[in-house]
Write a protein that binds this DNA or RNA. Structure first.
Lengths: 284, 284
DNA sequence: CTAGCTTTGATATTATTTTTTCATAGTCAA
DNA sequence: TTGACTATGAAAAAATAATATCAAAGCTAG
């Protein structure tokens, strides 16, 4: 029987340490198991005895027997490399797997809904250091705006995440110039006040507006210069933002790569300023 | 350099025994080399010392070093076709499309690194209304924690997102009970203070800890009851969290579906209470 | 909170694997 | 044929890896 399958079978009766091992093995399956027992122990923060007991529990004679099995598996599956990744998950109707395949569809659809010209235009806008960037999102989608602003801040200066409280918005609006960019994320259950913010910011300062929304198009999109629309229907009770997330990652990566030298220097400078008790410098 | 190639290069200056070894290695390449040195000696009718000398001649530190190389080679060659995109090769062609295929790859890998039993366990933990849930993430990854907490709050009560400032953590720690759940997101460039928080929360209240991290395993994972590990290497300048994101969406959806009636009522009640002009509810 | 149970890793022990040493066998030129 | 050399494997030694033991820590039910 496949090692992987044995892990599945036993996974209900594993101890904390054993689960940790299970996680590590599956994450880099099957190669993680080819390390020596000590190295694996160190990597997983467990101990050789625990590993030894674990593989015994899985039904092997000992660690070496376990490794022999893994090697055999590799040998077998060599003919169809894809097996390793997809084929041998035994459980039918596995929730996670099913969900993932839907998400993957969404993500592909998201990407193909955006032309590369538009993609480049928005990257240029947000990457342009001469423009300040203001970001905000809706109740849930603000998490995405936050993700973008945290990253963007590593690449460039002049990035401002607007707080949730509308009372404070005017303070930011007064600083917006017509070259600046207002980046809004607004998915359905649209928030009226975001559209209002867009309208007024546009009217007052002529700021450039980029909106990330779904196909029904947030009312804020009416005032936008650029609209990224991604599908969100996952066929479940919630909408899925994974398409938006990947799109944003692609955008951020593109921006960072475009001026990588500057970004690298900026990150280094930033790191040297980080307060020490909060950060580990050894990155691995 | 490939072992195979080294064999080629040296083939002119090999002794009789070495040629025998060379043949055997190539005949069942690269698996023959994964045997122990004794077994290989027996199979080839040579002796361990000869093999040891041979691999040294090939330029390795010793037999184990030689094996490590072979394993790496297998690892490389066994990558799925999609993985091949990911190498260090810069993205070419349509940027977005290529990025998406990398992300999809990461996402599938993330899912297959998690057993369905573990997935269910964590869903149960976070969905259990008898437990309070505390969430926090690192500098960047907190966006994911935020996303989870916003969603979770729609499903159930007793969800608390810890603020970034460690000064305020004790206030939350004092409220943690041993049944409660502390959910942490910590990806590389781990934050020391998160591990510290985990340690102390565990020591003080025996809270259940769930950690979402990468394969290098955040130090916080040492204190965890459950660890979700997702791959993050996208082959670009940034790590990609899309695997984590999809996993979280799957989890949230699962939780919401499990008690959908309650959730629906909760959302309705919530909506009727929202301040009408769209005020966004603050998170902390 | 405590008693009794399970889990865990430090240490010691044992087993295994690899390399070194060294004597012998083989090769080839004179 | 001899002597100088290389190649080879048996055996010993060293290095490395895996497991057993055991005390301590953790957990759970009462």
């Amino acid at each position: 029987m496949q090692v992987r399958q044995r892990l599945e079978n036993l996974s209900s009766e594993l101890t904390a340490t054993e689960r940790k091992l299970c996680t590590a093995l599956l994450l880099d399956y099957p190669y993680a198991g080819l390390d020596t027992i000590q190295d694996l122990a160190k990597k997983t923060g467990t101990s050789p005895p625990s590993i030894s007991r674990f593989v015994t529990k899985l039904g092997f004679q000992g660690y070496q027997d376990f490794q022999r099995h893994l090697i055999d598996e590799i040998r077998q599956s060599n003919r169809s490399p894809l097996d390793l990744h997809v084929g041998d998950r035994p459980i039918q109707g596995d929730y996670l797997e099913d969900f993932v395949s839907r998400a993957v569809n969404l993500i592909s659809a998201s990407a193909s809904a955006i032309t590369s010209a538009q993609f480049e235009r928005v990257c240029d806008l947000l990457g342009d250091e001469k423009r300040n960037v203001y970001l905000i999102g809706g109740r849930i989608s603000d998490a995405i705006a936050l993700y973008v602003s945290r990253h963007l801040r590593q690449v460039r200066s002049g990035v401002f995440h607007l707080p949730a409280d509308p009372e404070i918005w005017p303070e930011y609006m007064l600083r917006m110039r017509s070259k600046d960019v207002l980046f809004m994320v607004d998915y359905r259950r649209y928030q009226r006040n975001l559209a209002e913010l867009a309208r007024r910011a546009k009217a007052q300062s002529g700021v450039q507006i980029v909106v990330l929304t779904d196909k029904w198009m947030s009312p804020a999109a009416n005032h936008a210069n650029e609209v990224f629309a991604t599908p969100i229907e996952s066929g479940t009770v919630w909408d899925s933002y994974s398409g938006a997330m990947v799109l944003m990652e692609a955008m951020l990566t593109r921006i960072a790569e475009t001026n990588w030298d500057k970004t690298r220097k900026r990150i280094e400078a930033w790191d040297s300023l980080r307060f020490d008790h909060g950060a580990r410098d050894d990155d691995q």
